[in-house]
Each structure stands twice: as structure tokens, then as C-alpha cells.
Amino acid sequence: MADTLRFAFAGFRHAHVLDLYNAVKSKDCCQIVACCEEDAQTRAVLAEGGKIKVTHQSYDDMLGGVDFDVLALGDVYSKRGAMAIKALEAGKHVMADKPICIKLDEFDRISDLARRNKLCLGLQLDLRSYGVYHTMRKVIREGRIGEVLSVVFTGQHPLMPKVRPGWYFEDGRHGGTINDIAIHGTDLVPWLTGHEIVRPVAARVWNSHCALNRKFQDGAQLVLELDNKAGVMADVSYHSPDHLKGMPPQYWRVTIFGSAGLVETSLTQPDVMVVDKDSGEIQRLSPEPNVTWRYLNDFLACVGGSAGEGMVTTETVLAATKAALEAQRLADA
């Protein structure tokens, strides 16, 4: 990897990309050399904020006219696949807010280009940044609950139609709630358990209460199969109460049952609950420290050729993306 990795940002249509912008800005080894925003209203908001200088109004102009190493992608979901493909065809690495695309044919092209040209893909899969999940992973990998039998995770979000960007609710731009949210779980579960996702068994999406667009599927549930025949059940609906202050205990709660015990935690839980093979008592384990911007650290290691075990890599990004897209396709069928 070069001494300085040059990032060009394309699209600021989702707030998540601001976290990536701040993360890149904080790294001495990274330099932001260009920022593109094609949407006039978003450009006006950025100008008013005064923290991000938009250098280009055309993605193609930036791609063809700026010398950079990494495309940082945060445009509307439906535009990301084509933008990532163009960047990979131009020999650029891609670091994106999730999802990187909303169609399986886009995924196939992205996968082929990244592998064939030895380019790195990164996603803002930030659940791996939290110490509770690292402690959970250690418990499982040490065999304390035996063989993994089943997994349940809940990642319900508030819909907040007055807060979320308007394009979310426009036809064809979002791409589906499973692909949007469940990808965190399709990344987390294999990383925790050591078992890959084989296939989606069942999936359902539906409109339950979103009045802005009755085609918007705010309900989303799925069932997956792991390579050891274990099952995964998940609910990632936009059903959490909008008026709730703070996060509910169900927010990214993960419960894993093993042949000799169980382990559970969530983003709002201060510890990790374990019943292991050596004790019938509930134990509360203190979590490892959180690591801010772990997703970017892993991506930089990938670009530098030093990615280690347990990191987010191009292959884990592809696996998580494919699992989410296939479950979304099953739900849409």
C-alpha cells in the first residue's frame, strides 16, 4: 500500500457515509482528494454545514478526472451498484456504506471484477466494532456452548419517515429491507459461529404501516441455513417505536443456542450472558473494549495485504452481500 491512500467520495445521500468520511479524515495514512454529490439539494445541505467541500457534481467527471485509489460510496442504494462497477473497472478499491448494490446481477459483476483484478471491497459493517460481540465470538470459538445449533437475531429499526431521506420511500431506490438491514446479520453470524450461510430457507417482506408508500416493505423476516445444518431466524423490520428514546433491548440482540449451552447479548446489553458446558448457572461476562471504526481498519489492512483472521475482507463482504440479496430475492418472489 502507498504511504498515503487517496479517497474520493461519491454521494452523501445517507448519513452513514458521514461516519466513513470522519473515519477516513482521522487517519494519517488517508487523504480525501475529491467529493462528488450529484443531487442539488444535498449539495446545498453540505454547503450549509460547511464541513464537506463538494468538488464535483458529476460522478463520471470525478472518476475520469481525479487520481485516487479508493472510491467511498454513499449515494442512494439503487445507484451504488453501477457506480461501484465503474470504479472497479477503473482499477479502484471500493469502500461503501451498506448495501453496495441492490441487484444480484450487479453483485455478480462486482464480485468478478474485485476478484479478477485483486481489488478490495469494504462495507461499514460496524457491529464487529462492539466488544460484546467479540466476547460472544470468543465464547463460541472456545467451545463453551458446544456445537452451534440455532441462532436468533433481531435488528428492528424505527421507520422515522420524517427523518429518513425521502428517496428511501421512492419506488426502486431502496431495494428491500432485508438487503438494507439483514446484511449486518449475514456478516455477523458466520463471523461469530465459524459457519457459513448456505441458503435462505424462507423470507417474507410486507407493508405493515408505512403510509408514505404502500409498496415500501417495512416488515422483514427471514430464515437461513448454516453449513452445519443449524438454523438462523431473524426479524429486521422497521417496527421499533419511532417515539422511543434510546434503543430497545432487542436492538441487535443475538441469541445462540449450542449443544452444551447458550450465549446472548445485544447492543444495549452491558455484558454477555452465558450458560456454558461446565455450569448450569447464568454467567455475566464483561465485554472486550469497543474499537471505533474497526471496519475501516480492516479495509486498510486488506488494501495493504495484511488482513488477518476475523477481519472484514473482500470475501466476507461478498458472502454477506450475496446472502442478503438471495434472501431478499426469495422474499420478493
Rank of each mutant, 00 (worst) to 15 (best):
D97A: 10
A23R: 11
G308C: 10
K103E: 09
D105A: 06
N297L: 14
V236D: 04
L125A: 04
D235T: 03
A324F: 10
V275S: 11
G261C: 03
A301S: 13
N213H: 13
L149M: 10
Y295C: 04
S237K: 00
A23Q: 00
A2R: 08
N297Y: 13
R173I: 11
L192C: 05
M1A: 12
R214N: 04
M136T: 00
A234M: 01
K92C: 02
S78M: 04
C35R: 01
C29M: 13
V148M: 02
D271N: 15
P161G: 00
G258D: 07
C30H: 09
A10F: 06
F12R: 10
C29I: 15
V76D: 07
G49D: 13
V76Y: 03
G49E: 14
S259A: 10
L125T: 05
C29P: 00
A96V: 08
Y77C: 14
G280I: 09
Y238A: 05
H243K: 08
I183E: 06
T313Q: 01
I197H: 01
H184F: 04
H243Y: 06
G231Q: 05
N290D: 15
G175C: 12
D112W: 11
D108Q: 14
A234P: 01
A320T: 12
W206F: 06
V139E: 01
A82M: 15
S111N: 10
L318E: 03
K98S: 02
A260K: 11
Y251W: 14
L262N: 08
S78E: 07
Q41P: 01
K118R: 14
T4Q: 12
R199K: 04
L300G: 05
F299C: 05
P248I: 09
S208I: 08
A234E: 01
E37V: 05
G64A: 07
A47C: 07
V274I: 06
E196Q: 13
M247G: 06
C35K: 01
Q328P: 00
G194C: 10
R116E: 13
L285H: 03
G131I: 14
W252S: 12
L267T: 06
G155R: 02
W167S: 01
R204F: 10
M95I: 15
D278C: 03
K27W: 09
T268D: 04
Q41D: 05
K98E: 00
K86V: 06
V152I: 07
A10R: 06
L46G: 08
C101I: 09
H243V: 02
A40I: 08
G175M: 09
H184I: 09
D39F: 14
M273P: 03
V223C: 05
R253C: 02
D19T: 14
G175W: 13
K118W: 03
L222D: 02
